[in-house]
Amino acid sequence: MENGLDSYLRFLEGDQSALKTVVELYWDDMLLFTNGYVQNLSDAEDIAQEALIRLSIKRPRLVHENQLKAYLFKICRNLSINHLKKQKRHIDMSQELTENIEDDMQKIEARMELKDSAQALHHAMRKLKLEYREILYLRYFEQLTIPECARIMKCTERQATAVGYQARQALRKILEKEGYSIENI
């Protein structure tokens, strides 16, 4: 299966069907990442879809695969923050909706074929602060480098490194509370 960058380059040349490959490759990751911010799957879907729409409209010239991923995640992050600002004025949703969202999240995780340990991490990360969750997801789930994480989070590399260290420490404490044995966090 070709990587996302090759499909995107074909899309730039005029092959609209190549965009489907890009969607299949990055949709779930973007959804989980965005859901970490908004804590609402339907909103996360809208945000991730909007990120893909902006990619198809703007059509930036990218060279590396990680650049494409970083571009998508950066848009998702910015849109999520905007959404959170707007949502402060709105009423919290009912419990039924949260239960449905939990079911959907499990479906996504199953579709992504996440291991049990990874799923446990996901659940533990939801209890962390937003920036901790952000850096951990980008660094360890998406396998992005520190400079790319810093670009997405709009901070310096040193700040991204420091936040990553603090996030790992906080995650360790949460996992130890839940009874998990942690190695090399």
Binding site: L19, K20, W27, Q49, I53, S56, I57, I108
Partner: peptide, 19 residues
């Protein structure tokens, strides 16, 4: 929850409308 095809169709339609 949306499927890949739904997302792809939505993205293509939005891009064409913008054009």
């Amino acid at each position: 929850m949306k499927t890949y095809d739904e997302v792809y169709q939505n993205v293509i339609q939005a891009a064409n409308a913008h054009k």
